[in-house]
């Protein structure tokens, strides 16, 4: 009996999570003229692949923007995070804990509260409307979370290892290079996945700080779906394209993805 309920519940939940996906695929594969509200759940007859083609044509430059943005911002941010985490975990100084806490607060602020000055700043340094401006912003606002993940990870590395290297005459960077870095792969993976997903999916900065040429895909999708005479096959095909990279990351690196998710919350 209990088993029955268990499975019924799981089945129901699976439907809740997967039905939207089913509808998205269904709609993306329909001819625009055949999309009517009362037949939304009917299988497309014939299957119409053209939507993906059109959506891809329309989205390709934005997709490329997103790729450049997410990859470069992620790489930079991982590097910064590793160094910060290393300092805070292995070279703490008086007040470093307080500074760390002040830093962490940046992770939680609603970005609306800094949007106007940020906008003015990016404009003032001449990066408004460029991908570089957006990359800078993502790296900076990513500092708290990446520092947190690396600090927690490096705290698990025994101090004795660092101590031993120091006695052997290694300096700050030497220890980082030869002791810490070789052990860091898992943390790098976690940070890379986390940042990549976050940056790929981000919208507010993207919509405020870019011009059409430098728009990432989230902005393009929101504009397409909110646009005139919505023929839903295109937004749906676009949604699939916009979701694909992060979904692939999730499917193939799910374990690390989860660790990134948990990093921000279950610590200590």
């Amino acid at each position: 009996m209990g088993r029955f309920f268990l499975h019924a519940f799981l089945l129901l939940a699976t439907l809740f999570f997967l039905l939207p996906v089913y509808l998205v695929i269904l709609t993306a594969l329909k001819e625009p003229a055949k999309i009517t509200l009362d037949t939304v759940w009917h299988w497309p007859e014939p299957v119409y692949w053209e939507s993906f083609h059109i959506a891809w044509e329309a989205f390709r430059p934005k997709f490329q923007n997103s790729v450049v943005l997410a990859l470069s911002a992620t790489a930079l941010s991982a590097l910064v995070g590793a160094l910060n985490g290393y300092v805070l975990a292995k070279w703490p100084f008086r007040g470093s804990n307080l500074l760390f806490a002040l830093m962490l607060f940046g992770m939680f602020i609603p970005y609306q509260s800094i949007l106007i000055p940020l906008f003015q700043f990016v404009k003032a340094i001449g990066l408004y409307g460029t991908l570089w401006g957006l990359i800078l912003v993502h790296v900076v606002y990513g500092i708290p979370i990446v520092t947190l993940i690396f600090k927690n990870y490096y705290s698990e590395i025994p101090d004795e290892l660092v101590e031993a290297a120091r006695i052997d005459g290694a300096g700050f960077f030497g220890i980082f290079r030869h002791v810490i870095l070789p052990l860091s792969a898992p943390a790098f993976v976690v940070v890379a996945i986390w940042q990549f997903t976050q940056i790929w999916n981000e919208f507010l900065f993207a919509v405020t700080l870019t011009r059409p040429e430098s728009q990432p895909i989230t902005v393009a999708l929101a504009q397409l779906a909110g646009g005139e005479a919505v023929k839903w096959n295109l937004p749906m095909a676009g949604a699939i394209l916009a979701a694909l990279p992060t979904l692939l990351v999730y499917i193939f690196l799910g374990r690390y993805f989860l660790r990134g998710l948990l990093a921000g919350s279950v610590k200590g």
């Binding site: 999570f17 790929w200 999916n201 981000e202 929101a222 916009a242 979701a243 992060t246 979904l247």
Partner: peptide, 12 residues
């Protein structure tokens, strides 16, 4: 769904 952006979720 955690891997999706809110924009994608919203559109869907």
């Amino acid at each position: 769904p955690m891997a999706l952006s809110f924009v994608v979720t919203g559109t869907i």
